[in-house]
Design a protein around this nucleic acid. Structure first.
Length: 469
RNA sequence: GGAGAGGUGGCAGAGCGGUUGAAUGCGCCGGAUUCGAAAUCCGGUAUGGCCUUCGGGUCAUCGGGGGUUCGAAUCCCCCCCUCUCCGCCA
């Protein structure tokens, strides 16, 4: 959520921001609703003040009079009743006015709230303006010794590459038909060494973030209340992307939603809390199963492990004080963690500065990391793919947008501090999403004989196995 | 899932229709006392919104939502959560 006060003062900043992000939102309508709302609110407040004043004044009088009324008879009773009615008349009139204003407020409340929630965080000035992912800017690329981006896979390795789908099939790593039988399109079953490799990457990623980088490992719910989805900024915009568990129609008080990333659980942890500044930054890492409906992606990446409804992801989040410099520094570091991670796996990758149109509502800045996938891309003359980068990581910097929605603040000055409360800043980044990351692993580690070498850092997690197949 | 009890400020815990944003204790902050500390004493100690001549004013909030009433922490309804017992169970 954006800062409403700032919106009032700098509406153009938000108009431009929304425009650059290609998010249609009627800022003028929001401002209009805000001002009429405040007008009604202050009118109502004045009446309430008067009502409270009267209540304090007449309260002690009415009580005894009511008591006397019970015992009184005849003319005395009529006189007392008249007196009570006279006292009640003024507040009763106020009550009617207040209720009528309440009605006025209710009419626009829903529209106001949903408009406010849908105003995107303006992208930072140093984020390149662009419309789609095609306008993203490559920052740099890295490759392990023995890999040259200017040469084809065959020139680099001496044989034509297989796609991960072919490898999974020939090595018995994934059973796609049975996955589809069980759960429909975009479903799969990891089998044997496929499952072990999947578990190995995830566990390696968790250990790396915990042991080497000081993150606290967590297991968090993946089925959450709507509040958590709205709070983390995935709703209302991404409602279509989430699986919805309808519990209300079965008599429960609230529906549930399956999370599409561990970020929801990790960030939701401190919803409605005031943290101690001394406890910041919070560095959390989780591995969680992620569920995505992939609505609107029909026909895109339908084969293989690239775009699927369910996967497991190790995700890192950082909650830090409200300071742009600190938050930018964390962004760099979190990207650094992933680069070191990928370098330890010797996977070729590149960094992309996402353009404004590719950011999504809650980000001020986003860096994507793409691994080289030899089995993707246009086919050559022999029908063998020529390779392509594929997104495996995404590092977001959100300022206080998410923490505002989550109502997550901290108090300056440490324990018992006297400082005022401030919304925290938050950041998140993938560490490893599997099985997608198995694609570059399998494709880059394949051998001429059709086997796949297990990356050295993963061998301890696979009982020392060096080769699959 | 069934039966019962309960959700009040950072914590514990009163209040159960009338000047209650809320007693009391603990904690915390400031001060006094002290060479210093403990103890003691005094004062202060929620969050958010709106308005402001920046002194302050005002409204809302006692799990959440709705209702009754001139007036609700207190009464009614729905929901959520916690605890105890029973049942079921990875």
């Amino acid at each position: 959520m954006i800062d409403l006060k700032d919106l009032r003062e700098n509406p153009d900043r938000y108009r431009t921001g929304a425009q650059r992000k290609q998010v249609p939102v009627d800022i003028d309508r929001l401002l209009e609703l805000d001002s009429s709302r405040r007008e009604t609110l202050s009118e109502q407040e004045t009446l309430r003040a008067e009502q409270n004043r009267l209540a304090k004044e007449t309260g002690p009088k009415i009580g005894p009079l009511m008591g006397q009324l019970k015992k009184a008879e005849g003319a005395d009773k009529d006189r007392l009743q008249a007196e009570i009615d006279a006292i009640k008349a003024a507040p009763a009139a106020l009550k009617e006015k207040i209720q009528s204003l309440e009605g006025t407020l209710k009419v626009s409340e829903d529209e106001f709230r949903s408009l406010l929630l849908s105003v995107p965080l303006p992208p930072d000035e140093d984020v390149p303006v662009g419309k789609t992912a095609d306008d993203n800017v490559e920052l740099r690329r890295w490759a392990p010794a023995g890999w040259d981006y200017d040469k084809s896979f065959e020139e680099n390795k001496g044989f034509k590459p297989k796609t991960h789908i072919e490898l999974c099939d020939s090595l018995g790593l994934v059973d796609f038909p049975r996955g589809v039988k069980l759960a429909g399109t975009r479903s799969y079953v990891l089998t044997g060494m496929g499952m072990r490799l999947h578990q190995a990457v995830l566990r390696y990623a968790i250990d790396y973030m915990s042991d080497t980088n000081g993150f606290t490992p967590m297991s968090v719910p993946v089925v959450v209340k709507e509040e958590a989805m709205v709070g983390t900024g995935f709703f209302p915009g991404g409602r279509e992307q989430a699986y919805h568990v309808d519990e209300v129609s079965r008599g429960s008080g609230h529906d549930l939603f399956l999370t599409g990333t561990g970020e929801v659980g990790l960030m939701g942890l401190h919803q409605d809390e005031i943290l101690d500044e001394d406890d910041l930054p919070k560095q959390y890492v989780t591995v969680s199963t992620c569920f995505r409906r992939e609505a609107g992606a029909a026909g895109k990446d339908t084969a293989g492990l690239y775009r699927i409804h369910q996967f497991d992801k190790v995700e890192q989040v950082v909650i830090c004080p409200s300071d742009e410099t600190v938050s930018r520094e964390w962004h760099r570091r979190m990207i650094g963690f992933v680069e070191t991670f990928l370098q330890s796996l010797a996977l070729p990758y590149r960094l992309l500065q996402c353009c404004t149109g590719d950011l999504g509502v809650k980000n001020a800045d986003m860096i994507d990391l793409e691994c080289w996938m030899p089995g993707r891309g246009e086919p050559d003359a022999d029908g063998v793919p020529t390779g392509e980068f594929g997104e495996t990581h995404s590092a977001s910097r959100l300022y206080d947008y998410q923490c505002r929605r989550l109502n997550m603040r901290y108090r300056a000055g440490g324990e018992g501090g006297q400082g005022t409360t401030t919304f925290c800043h938050s950041l998140n980044n993938t560490v490893a999403a599997s099985p997608r990351i198995l694609i570059p692993i399998l494709e880059n580690y394949q051998n001429a004989d059709g086997s796949v070498t297990v990356p050295e850092v993963l061998r301890p997690y696979m009982n020392g196995i060096e080769t699959i197949g």
